[in-house]
Design a binder for these strands. Structure first.
Lengths: 253, 253
DNA sequence: CGGCTGCTTGATTACGCTCAAGATTAGTGG
DNA sequence: CCACTAATCTTGAGCGTAATCAAGCAGCCG
């Protein structure tokens, strides 16, 4: 396909890892010089995904990891009944597809929540490169390990918190991640729908909507449509810390 | 400590990776000959943990990964209020501690559910070894990736299933894992208490107990105390597949 | 402007939690 | 070996949180 080669070239230059603002969060952390160039050379930048477009679908063969550059990706599973389960939202600097290495097939589908550009990192080239670049090897392990740790902490949210605690924890998690990326921790735009949030948190849409309203009336935050402004993060933390139901805080054997 | 050096030596010989029955599930998969010996040399076998004993505690520095050899380990977090959240159960052949690589500190505590022996794999020796042994490098990535994928599928259980579906899914997951290890898929001993199961599944103990009773009265299984025999795995699959509450099966953006 | 999708609000229902007590089993020491 | 204590598990009754059902409302697109 000979379509707009010039534009693509410009893009390539602009997004080289060395000049990428996400450098400190992404795979290249701790790598520079000639090693960074070697990594850079295997990375492919493709045209941005439009809102709703799939990055990959469940069941397709695993070829590459993807690093989000801008925009947002949601990953989700669809069970036999056609029911969707949202498993995560991925912001710039985060990797998508790590769960597919094990079986060589994507266990989840991934689609763009808004206009989103990603870096494609072919795994058959990345993997041998980690043998030669210690910093790269360690960073890949770190990122995978953090993914596991963050999944585990989400268990706590789904297992122990009531509806208010879940939404509070979710908003604070987004806040923290936006702050890490240099955006405001207190005001941000939700890339995902309430339906997606509800699904991710294991709640009904109506419940999420009601809690937004309640939080607003209690002066914890202000929302208008997708835009959220946190007014009292400290109290949100407190609410996120409460373990609402099912908590006979005893310990087993 | 000069305690029973002979016993330890015998143990060392007996559990060498090459002769370990978990070979096919554990870290050494796909490695043999001289490479396997190199891996074997860095692995340390320590005295078995007694029931209730900690393998490590939350907040302690990360030094090593652990492979369960026999017995079972539960991992859990304790929140500010002293409330426990069980995040996983680890059977023989599974690695514990993968979530600690990222920050260099264990985010969870791990304790033995019964008499348990583990292989200790010092990470500062394992990591450089992965540079030289491609099979080892790939297997470590595979195991981490599978951990992520299995955590994601647990989201589906916590988020979409009702109480019956959660317990059914849990029992089937154990069944599958026991079968992979050469044990019976239909009859096994639960190493963990009902309290731990309930906590892991985000339910109250009473609910778990009631559902065991209900399953039994419907002829799906038989339990006596810790022992479980699955009588109708097909119907359990069906129950595990139902998405009980909060499922307006719609898809978001 | 109409049709659509996404969000909000209200009324009712139900699933699973809480509280309470009894039943079994395991662990301990006389 | 058995009595005693302490867990763990089971069962029952009542309640509360969040789901379901049902409309109405507000942006957004063609």
């Amino acid at each position: 396909m000979p379509s707009r080669p010039k534009v693509i070239d410009i893009q390539r230059i602009k997004v080289a890892c060395r000049s990428c603002t996400l450098h400190e969060l992404c795979l290249p952390l701790g790598i520079d010089g000639e090693e960074l160039e070697r990594l850079d050379r295997i990375i492919r930048r493709r045209r941005p995904l439009e809102r709703g477009e799939h990055l990959f679908r469940r069941g397709t063969p695993f070829r590459a990891l993807y690093a989000v550059r801008s925009g947002a990706i949601k990953t989700y599973a669809v069970d036999e009944a056609g029911c969707e389960q949202v498993t995560g939202f991925h912001l710039p600097g985060e990797l998508v597809g790590l769960d597919a290495i094990g079986e060589g097939v994507h266990p989840l589908s991934a689609r763009a929540l808004e206009r989103t550009s990603v870096c494609e990192i072919p795994f058959d080239q990345l993997e041998p490169l980690t043998a030669e670049i210690p910093g790269l090897r360690r960073q890949l392990l770190r990122l995978m390990s953090r993914e596991i740790a963050s999944d585990e902490s989400h268990f706590g949210v789904l297992g122990q918190k009531g509806a208010e605690g879940r939404l509070a924890a979710f908003l604070l998690s987004l806040s923290r991640r936006y702050a890490e990326r240099g955006f405001s921790a207190l005001e941000f735009r939700l890339a995902m729908s309430r339906t997606d949030i509800a699904n991710y948190l294991g709640l009904a849409v109506e419940t999420v909507s009601r809690i937004f309203t309640r939080f607003q009336s209690e002066g914890l935050l202000r929302t208008q449509r997708k835009l959220v402004r946190l007014l009292d993060p400290a109290r949100l933390e407190a609410i996120a810390g409460e373990h609402a139901p099912a908590s006979r805080c005893g310990r087993g054997a």
